[in-house]
Design a protein around this nucleic acid. Structure first.
Lengths: 261, 261
DNA sequence: AAATTACGGATTATCGATTTTATTCTGCCT
DNA sequence: AGGCAGAATAAAATCGATAATCCGTAATTT
């Protein structure tokens, strides 16, 4: 995976053939946009590991973007919280810690749940349609999951994101939706490892989804919010167990821990 | 302060007298950091007006930063939501609209209020100290406000921000604090015009602050949160009246409206 | 022998120039 | 007269090169 194009960066700057999976994103327009989304995806998916140093030259050669594009993309990712940087010492992927996961989970239980509540209470009619559609897609993907190839897993992850976003897409507040997306993507960095270890989703995850959907479509805000909060908690617990095991933290946030010699 | 290290890049580097006020920020380290904070401040303070086109060359000459630094700073501001950009058409300050103000207000009433609740319920001891200190500073500034020079207004704005941030600084969630800051700064763009028109703060604003502080220090979460929500609402209402008047919206978000011929 | 300082390699930050893209203006055609 | 095509202009995006900084290592001194 990660085909590493290494595009002859001399004269041909040909539209940058996508190395990664086809995303629902439309054509990137500028190279910077492309670099931004590519790096973002690879950080969330763990291709660029937590705490990994992000050398400009390495990224330039690996992805075939120009140095400027890489730098600007990294700048945006800093504001997104996926990348950190220090004055003259460059960039690195934000570390993964148990405390950060706990914080993400707590914040999601405030913001995503509130967004769901507003969706239920204020969402327009077509919102219900989106929920039904996304639920259907997710179910289709889940029932057809027999093996755990990267493609299948990625498909499920995308369907799961679609599902969560559809749930809150009736919320009238753009900011709440934006924060929900941000927190979801941050959490995705943690969840990804869980999915890798637990190929076929047992643990009654589908059941949790069903409960959320049922309560939502019944416009029972209290029940739906409680179910969503529970779901977020369970997911985070599973991720914590998969990543940090029972005991201590795995990554220290201290200095950037190099990965390459 | 800030002092623009600059180090005579080529020959002239005309030092560009700062358009802005001195901030509490420490030395910027890199030029990009400096550009980022300077632009951020000037956007929030309205020096760079809403919907204004941000030409790289113009910013470069005006502030004396390099083109790359400007571009990277703008990239970060895009992720912050203070600047928007489109593929090959450059950058512009995010527009100001009545709908956006309403959304910001609603989001603040969810997030900032929740952060206050968590502060009251979970905040450590020294948090109360910070609240008392910030309240004292704000009172000092308010009682000594007789004229409305830009410096005085800026001092008040800073004290007000300190006050709001101190209130929620006991919240254990870094993400909620971060979102609160983001929304506060976004709202500041709207509030700024209110303050300009209403030099000496009447409208019982101090009274609102007092009520919030009293309830907070009494650890009465319900009362404090209600007071804060009311305060956010009143502030937004005043800003809406000052900017949009009674009727229609002032700025259309449509195409970037040029300012320079 | 330990600590400190000086050097070399590597990486980042910055600047200038080039290429690509969009916008505006003008002339021609309908 | 109005609309369209095409050139001219302006701006943004990208690239290549230079200067400043940091990290690791080795030599030197106490």
């Amino acid at each position: 995976m990660v085909a590493l194009k290494a595009a002859a960066p001399k004269m041909a700057a040909p539209k940058i053939a996508a190395l990664t999976h086809p995303v629902e994103r439309e054509e990137p327009g500028s190279q910077i946009e492309g670099a931004y989304w590519r790096l973002r995806e690879d950080i969330i998916a763990g291709v660029l590991a937590a705490s990994e140093k992000l050398r400009i030259e390495f990224l330039r050669q690996t992805y075939g973007f120009g140095a400027s594009a890489v730098r600007e993309a990294l700048s945006r990712l800093v504001s997104d919280g996926l990348v950190e940087c220090e004055a003259q010492r460059g960039y690195w992927v934000s570390p993964i810690t148990r405390a950060e996961l706990a914080d993400l989970t707590a914040a999601r239980k405030v913001i995503e749940v509130e967004a769901l509540r507003q969706s239920i209470e204020l969402g327009p009619l077509e919102w219900e349609g989106r929920v039904v559609a996304a639920t259907h897609s997710l179910e289709r993907v889940e029932t057809s999951m027999t093996e755990a190839t990267p493609d299948v897993i990625m498909g499920w992850e995308r369907a799961n994101r679609q599902f969560h976003m559809a749930l809150i897409s009736g919320c009238p507040s753009r900011w709440l939706i934006r924060f929900t997306e941000l927190l979801y993507d941050q959490s995705q960095r943690y969840r990804h490892r869980t999915v890798l270890r637990r190929p076929i989703p047992r643990r009654g995850l589908s059941a949790e989804h069903s409960e959320i959907v049922a309560a939502t479509l019944a416009r029972d805000a209290g029940r739906a919010c409680a179910a969503l909060a529970q779901h977020i908690d369970n997911t985070a617990r599973a991720a914590a167990a998969a990543i940090f095991g029972g005991g201590e933290a795995a990554h220290k946030p201290g200095r950037a821990s190099r990965r390459k010699g």
